[in-house]
Design a protein around this nucleic acid. Structure first.
Length: 818
DNA sequence: AGCACGCCGACT
DNA sequence: GTCGGCGTGCTC
């Protein structure tokens, strides 16, 4: 028999199925992983069986197929449906088959390759060979009895020299290498630095090396007070790199050890399940979706319900139906940490049948959960993005809650969009896909109104309360009238009023980009990262300037490096707003919630609980306060800078802004007390902001649609971007230009006549340089057909093989954000 | 990517 | 003779 196999070591430019002979001792099925020899040197690599075929399909000429060496799984790890899904992800998102497989499977199933080197029989060293390093490794192997693991050799030799020596010995046919695969279920660990000398001695070291090695001195000073510290943090505060710490380890001033990172504790136990009473609108939505669920091909439906309309109750009833029919369900949420309520509801209602999947799980936990789903013990899956691949048996229902959230789009390797995968998987497995949102993406609403999706609307809030009135405050006028603060006069009045009434307020700061960068007051220059085209941001905690992308860190200069002027923070972070609030409202409690104050200890949930229980008057924060929970006592919510997200280059800018404003406004007036919202903006006449203030989604949608058509964006066209990157700016741009010429040429040929496509660029990527690598991109605005995707994949393969473009890489993104 | 193979100039 | 560097081609 012959097995058609996707191998792990294939890169994009050579990714295709390879055929192997199945030895008689093995029986293989599609979805099983195997170990196979690959390439001229027959190095062992992992692969996954795609199909098994009878003999006779061998190539007429050419050598015979190599044999499969071993099965790595006793039974298939991926179902046929999952293999199909992997093929979809590969084709749709321009990655290798194995990249797709890696996205689908949990980390716990992966094997770690281990190399073992064995001396050839009667191998002897020839004195004519002049390679002392290789000779030393050879002799070590002899003393070790003729064979050793690479890890054992690594203890005695420096890594790079060892590689060269082994390569040499292999070429001389003195040693052979065998790769075995061992399962790896290791959890996340972090490196801890421990002080190895008395604190006084460490301080003396710090003193005496202040001038000659300031970074080492800073690290030792810190360690002297802390005793031990996570390396990451030590580096952060001292501005050190791991090399610094290794040097200090060599000096025997500190020791390094690995420690397991404990995941956050699971959320509190379940409350009693509440009976689900549906309003007439909820009932109508449920009835229509439930009817679809019975269909042989239920397709996709959009559940559009304003904030607080009770979409969750509809989900739960649908899941009940699905389970009753003996089928499983997957519910995707943007972020688990922000949905503790939902989590509790699920475990209260479905108990042990629920499986929760998200990134904060330990690898082992994640693997156990995955197995529980696969075995059928758990048939309700609640999870983030990657849970869309959960191995649920007989899947009946896929729910994507808050489908407009960008967290559904993966940021690395297969840059898939979980919503799109859910729609495809639903169709493939005859399951109903429900997209839920209070502010649906223009794409989804378009597909709903044009009939591709079903559409259910819930226009009333669950408690029958109206959406809070929204007041727009013109910040330019505030400025003209002499108020340069980020808190406008009307907002200040509203805050004072709320304080008087003992009610709470939520302030949302739309922080992006400019928030923490510095600029010189005199010459206006902005300290930039040396390797990236990004301004450095100031970090209060360590008093250093840091680069978000590459992690570069430098001490905060006392004066402007260009002209010696004063450096000042521009833009407005939450810290600045907090200070301003303290000045305007002395003594009033403010709970700040952003990436700096939320940690493993201070979880979202804890902070939210404090806000609720301690009745802290003001909650101030970024993204996360826009979602969060329902608070009875919150009667005022405000967006401090509604404009900031409007001017991103992304085609979704207006949509995102609308959605955020609607969410923040929806935070107020959830309880009996009613409420109101305030929107501060520099552009009060802006259409998106006006519609958002009116909470008029339909008007926003109608206005946005023609703009999307004009710009050739989704839902009318897809944007396929090819990003080129490399160390030499010239070559990167030349490569992009050459690629464009080739693409243009083919698009104009007879074969592609029927395709609708416009090529734009090359243009610099939004971050034109990252870590000393330049990047630019071509954009193809097109009707996204298989034929065009194949063309693009072909061109990228051709590009990767073309030696004249060496040093320049290229990858494709589909409707990506930057 | 990762590796072998072949060709060339340099060094002993 | 031997080594290392580099360009080329292939992976069932």
């Amino acid at each position: 028999m012959i097995a058609r196999i996707a191998v792990a070591s294939a890169v994009f430019s050579m990714d295709k199925p390879f055929d192997y002979r199945i030895p008689d001792s093995l029986t293989l099925q599609p979805g099983q992983r195997v170990r196979v020899p690959f390439g001229a040197s027959n190095r062992r690599t992992e692969g996954i069986v795609l199909a098994v075929m009878p003999d006779g399909a061998e190539r007429p000429d050419g050598p015979a197929f190599k044999p499969v060496e071993a099965a790595l799984d006793p039974e298939p790890l991926l179902s046929r449906a999952a293999l199909h899904l992997a093929a979809f992800v590969r084709e749709r998102y321009f990655c290798t088959f194995y990249d797709a497989v890696r996205a689908i499977l949990p980390a716990g199933v992966w094997f770690q390759p281990r190399d073992r080197y064995t001396l050839a029989e009667n191998a002897a060293w020839d004195d004519r060979w002049r390679n002392p390093a290789a000779q030393a490794v050879f002799q070590t192997l002899q003393t070790l009895g003729g064979a050793a693991e690479e890890s054992a050799l690594r203890a005695q030799f420096e890594a790079e020299a060892l590689q060269r020596a082994l390569q040499y010995l292999r070429q001389k046919k003195l040693v052979t290498c065998e790769t075995s695969h061992r399962r790896r279920v290791n959890d996340k660990t972090e490196r801890i630095a421990v002080l190895a000398v008395p604190a006084e001695e460490a301080r003396r070291f710090a003193q005496s090396h202040q001038a000659s090695a300031p970074v080492q001195a800073a690290a030792m000073e810190l360690l002297a007070t802390l005793g031990e510290c996570a390396c990451k943090e030590l580096c952060y505060y001292a501005g050190a790199t791991s090399a610094t710490l290794r040097r200090l380890e060599k000096l025997e001033l500190l020791t390094l050890r690995e420690q397991e990172v404990l995941p956050p504790p699971p959320p509190a136990a379940a409350a009693d399940p509440k009976p689900l009473l549906l309003t007439p609108q909820q009932q109508a939505a449920y009835d229509s979706l439930s009817a679809r669920l019975q269909d042989a091909s239920p397709g996709t439906a959009l559940l559009y319900g304003v904030t607080g309309s009770g979409k969750t109750a509809v989900y739960l009833r649908l899941i009940d139906d699905c389970l009753t029919a003996g089928r499983g369900a997957i519910v995707l949420v943007p972020e688990i940490a922000l949905t503790p309520q939902l989590l509790r509801q699920f475990s209260a209602r479905y108990g042990a049948r629920v499986a929760v999947l998200h990134s904060a799980l330990r690898i082992s936990e994640r693997y156990e959960t995955w197995k529980r789903i696969r075995s059928g013990d758990a048939d309700v899956v609640l999870g983030t993005r990657s849970a869309v691949f959960a191995p649920v048996r007989d899947l009946g229902l896929l729910i994507v809650d808050e489908e407009q959230e960008h967290t559904y789009q993966s940021e690395n390797a297969p840059r898939y969009h979980a919503r799109e995968v859910a729609i495809y998987r639903g169709a493939q497995e005859h399951a109903l896909t429900v997209l839920g949102s209070a502010t649906p993406t223009v794409e989804s609403m378009y597909r709903a109104v044009t009939g591709a999706f079903g559409l259910c609307r819930i226009t009333e809030r669950y408690n029958g309360r109206p959406l809070p009135p929204v007041e727009i405050v013109d910040m330019k006028r505030e400025l003209r009238e002499g108020n340069a603060s980020i808190i406008s006069e009307p907002l200040l009045l509203a805050l004072r009023e709320n304080l008087r009434l003992g009610q709470q307020s939520i302030l949302y700061l739309n922080r992006r980009g400019t928030s923490r960068m510095l600029a010189c007051v005199e010459c206006g220059s902005v300290p930039m990262c040396p390797g990236c085209s990004l301004p450095l941001t100031y970090h209060h905690a360590n008093g250093r300037l840091m680069c978000h992308i590459c992690g570069h860190s430098e001490p905060m200069p006392a004066r402007c490096p260009v002209c010696g002027g004063h450096l000042r923070q521009i833009g407005c972070g939450t810290q600045r707003v907090e200070e301003q609030l303290q000045n305007l409202l002395p003594g009033v409690g403010v709970l700040r919630m952003d990436a700096d104050t939320v940690s493993a200890v201070n979880t979202h949930e804890k902070l939210f609980r404090r806000f609720r229980e301690e009745r802290i008057p003001i909650l101030l924060g970024t993204q996360m306060v826009a979602k969060g929970l329902d608070f009875e006592n919150v009667t005022l919510s405000a967006v401090l800078d509604a404009d900031l997200s409007l001017y991103a280059s992304d085609y979704r800018a207006a949509e995102t802004t609308f959605s955020l404003i609607a969410q923040v406004a929806g935070r107020a007036g959830r309880g009996k007390l009613g409420g109101r919202a305030i929107l501060q903006t520099m552009t009060p006449q802006n259409q998106t902001i006006r519609f958002a203030a009116e909470q008029n989604y339909d008007a926003f949608f109608e206005a946005e649609l023609p703009l999307r058509q004009l710009r050739g964006c989704p839902p009318y066209r897809d944007l396929l971007t090819v990003t080129f990157h490399g160390r030499e700016e010239e070559r990167v741009w030349q490569a992009a230009l050459a690629f464009r010429a080739r693409l243009d040429g083919l698009l104009h040929s007879e074969f592609y006549r029927g395709e609708t496509a416009a090529v734009l660029g090359p243009a610099p990527a939004s971050v034109a340089r990252i870590n000393y690598h330049y990047r630019c991109r071509l954009t193809l605005s097109c009707v996204n057909t298989r034929r065009l995707r194949e063309l693009l994949a072909f061109l990228v393969r051709e590009f990767a093989k073309d030696r004249s473009f060496r040093g320049v890489g290229a990858f494709v993104d589909v409707n990506g954000r930057e």
